[in-house]
Design a protein around this nucleic acid. Structure first.
Lengths: 126, 126
DNA sequence: GCTTGACCTGGAGTGCACTCCAGGTTGTTG
DNA sequence: CAACAACCTGGAGTGCACTCCAGGTCAAGC
């Protein structure tokens, strides 16, 4: 079976980025080995979808293009780089968790600020 | 009492931004009414510290400079704009919470990816 | 009295991650 | 067969939030 190859537009739609961004990622070597139809147009397979989803997840949580490129380069270099890739993921995970803690603190401050507005409305001080 | 006025460098240090950023915020009207020493140098008071902390909290959680300026403009316009300011905070709060949810989902995916690395190491499939 | 460092102003420059454009090919549709 | 949409490439442009710079003032220390 031909397992559902996607056009650029379909992929863009599916993962929530623009077609331009998809091409940009490829230029930056964050995506490689994308297949082509007879007419030279890109065709993405299930593996591409899975990887681009991970890629977006990492990008969305602040991993830079440079870091992602490094991660990809390691992947290309084969199995011996697994420990380093794992380390990158763990390192990033720690950053994301720190970020979440920051967000939790921010939410508290925002709630506090909202409370002040509500209390002012009740007492109506100058 | 003179209640501890801070120099730009001290303020920058305290809230974790650069002196340049502090001036940039002032140019963008995100900070106003900053006092001056006799020599024309800025002197920040406790209110400034409190506001800049809130400002940083909002910026750190993705509120744009434009939005912050609007929020400040509303503040300058007086008490009648309180409902709108409150609405802005609530709106932002919702976005931050959505962001946290996104981060939680990302953490799950990253953990899943890490698990795959660990399991591959155990079984060592091609 | 001269250097040093923190500050001042207005304006220019930077880095990142896209995003858009020109100029061209292909393939379907009325 | 004309027009339209979706794709291709290489390269230029954009927006945001800073960040840096030139040229100058002022106070304290050596």
């Amino acid at each position: 079976m031909t397992t559902e190859l996607l056009t650029p537009a379909e992929m863009a739609d599916l993962v929530g980025v623009s077609v331009d961004t998809l091409r940009y990622y490829e230029r930056e070597r964050l995506i490689s080995g994308v297949g082509r139809a007879d007419n030279g147009h890109r065709r993405y397979d299930a593996d591409d979808v899975a990887w681009i989803r991970v890629l977006r997840c990492l990008r969305d949580t602040g991993m830079t293009i440079d870091q992602l490129r490094h991660y990809c380069d390691l992947g290309e270099q084969g199995v011996t780089t697994k420990p380093e890739r794992l380390a990158m993921l763990r390192d990033h995970r720690a950053k994301v968790e720190a970020r979440r803690a920051e967000i939790d603190r921010a939410l508290e401050l925002i709630d506090h600020k909202i409370d002040i507005y509500l209390n002012e409305a009740a007492g109506d001080a100058p």
